[in-house]
Design a protein around this nucleic acid. Sequence first.
DNA 1: ACCCAAACTACAATCGATTGCAATCAACTT
DNA 2: AAGTTGATTGCAATCGATTGTAGTTTGGGT
Lengths: 361, 361
Amino acid sequence: MRTKTTKLSVPSKPGLDLPMLGDIGSQVKMADIAMLAGVSESTVSRALAGSKLVNAVTRKRIEDIAASQSYSIDQRARNLRLSRTGTISVVFPLSHESEQGIADPFFLEMLGNLADELSNRGYDLLLRKIRSDVPRMLADLLREGRTDGVLLIGQSTQHGLINELAQSYRPLVVWGARQPDNGYITVGSDNIGGAAAAVRHLLACGHRRIAFLGNRQLPEVAARYQGYSQALNEAGLAVAPDLLLPVPFDRQGAFAAISGFLDRDRAIDAVFASSDIVAIAAIRALDQHGLKVPHDVAVVGFDDIMVAAAYTPALSTVRQDIALGASTMVDLLFRRIEGEVVASVELPTTLMIRASSERLG
Amino acid sequence: MRTKTTKLSVPSKPGLDLPMLGDIGSQVKMADIAMLAGVSESTVSRALAGSKLVNAVTRKRIEDIAASQSYSIDQRARNLRLSRTGTISVVFPLSHESEQGIADPFFLEMLGNLADELSNRGYDLLLRKIRSDVPRMLADLLREGRTDGVLLIGQSTQHGLINELAQSYRPLVVWGARQPDNGYITVGSDNIGGAAAAVRHLLACGHRRIAFLGNRQLPEVAARYQGYSQALNEAGLAVAPDLLLPVPFDRQGAFAAISGFLDRDRAIDAVFASSDIVAIAAIRALDQHGLKVPHDVAVVGFDDIMVAAAYTPALSTVRQDIALGASTMVDLLFRRIEGEVVASVELPTTLMIRASSERLG
DNA sequence: ACCCAAACTACAATCGATTGCAATCAACTT
DNA sequence: AAGTTGATTGCAATCGATTGTAGTTTGGGT
């Protein structure tokens, strides 16, 4: 007694293939296409999926009808059925400091690159910031079935929690520093090597009192500090604790911290900053204290964000290859989703020597 | 003959409310909660939705059980049923020029702010870049049922197409310039007023040959040009066509265009750039041509991106309030989704006078 | 005690697609 | 001409939640 209850949800003329802009947002569904083609939904589904179970002629006809109706598959329903989402979440753990938002250009550039990589693979990018409770938020994200995988940008100070989470959740790749007890996959730069190269360069320029600017609580900064002290040791120098300044990553905070430092101590001849944003803040602070860069104090940053080269003076810095980093993260994530066993990756860095650290006279 | 086929997908101990990190990603579903609570799925659904049809005691018990199982509603299924998505798409039409990615910090900052606004309202942000065919891509996005609304960042050169699309698709808000024949809602800055203020400032400093840098094909740039010529006219000056340089918005392209210009014409005493990125490229190009800013040439930009103030020389610019822009867009979008009739908004700008346009000695 | 309304709760259809398995049909074998 | 095979296609269950409607229980009135 099943009557043909299926009706074309949109009373559009089947034969014509007009642009049909008017249909946008309307509800042409697979059943409609099936009716128009005189086949079952199954066949439409298979035809559109390119299954070889469907006769080529039938498929062509279905495809044409679908196109003429400007039909596209409802991803909600599809995802529900396939228990997947076609979406990868990019998560930024916001530090307690800059509760505002994603401030650092480095991360924004990273985000742009990730969006490219993911859309190349036909995935969407779900952007989410999380306050503090990383595992809880991530767990929700996963349970809600919104995402096929997670890219966590920065470890913040949550290494332990991330590690715990990674025990039970596989499709996760983290940008940051490899930790000795990493239970999760990381992609990051060779922070130690990059920092050491930068400091060697400063030493080669004749600088001896080189300040280190950065919050060593963060694993990446800790690694950069390690490179810093390693280079000093190679040169037979010891780390001077009074030259270590824990500055935050945001512009204002960094500027304030550095200004405060310079108020009481100006006996430095170089600065190694843990990010370009910090380096630029340092240059401004130095300037306000009457110290010229590079004449009085040489400055080297880290990241090579777009403004670094454009800055005046052009900023010497340790370049991280953001595009490569993004594509590596995405690559590893998908391989891990496929079940492959993959290892963390450490990307090489390049020392970019520019005006801010020119060799002394 | 329906037997209880429903089984707890996860054999976890119902009574305990351990952290249950191990359950992340597993498949506790509503039926499981219903079984544990000894009620039907309907009741669980209603309880969790806060419906007052459910006894308070029952609700509490259900909530507790759900919590102890660290259950959350599957959004895929929920969205399918409700035909909604809980997601707003932010779409960047990529210009033909910078096919690479979202390069301009202004847009990235905007993105960060939008992410904040949306997550405050419990919505997710789906990031999508589209190549060129705006309406087609948007239409797909909508038909796929992935999104409840669209925020289009920048009109690119697609005003006509957007207008057409807007005929049939309502939940759309565009960042850009209001056009005379706008069929869609825009949020944007007072480009005319801002530009006029900048140029008046340059005129007041005694400059007369003020170059305009920007691609006037883009509606926003066209409006800024309008402000530029308006200010010149007020001062009894005519626009000199040889001072109008159509530069692209990306750093390299802008630099190249400006360098080329300076190679043949250096009789300018000021520059009004249609964005800070262009302004910074101009300063570099001027520098390479032996022209000092602001001594030889004054420069004013547009946007006031974070680096503007930090640049050396600090960049004078027309400030756009990105945070306000983002919150306005989101606000308008949701009001429009609710069916309210809303109008386009033009936000005030602020002229920030800094070192790059200091008054001539 | 008995009846009725109020207050809850369960049933079953529904959202739109996917897919294992059964059914159909034409062509080919002998 | 009957049997077999392979190529196609359709049926119906399923993914996990929501909700209109019908059914059950409880409490109050008399």
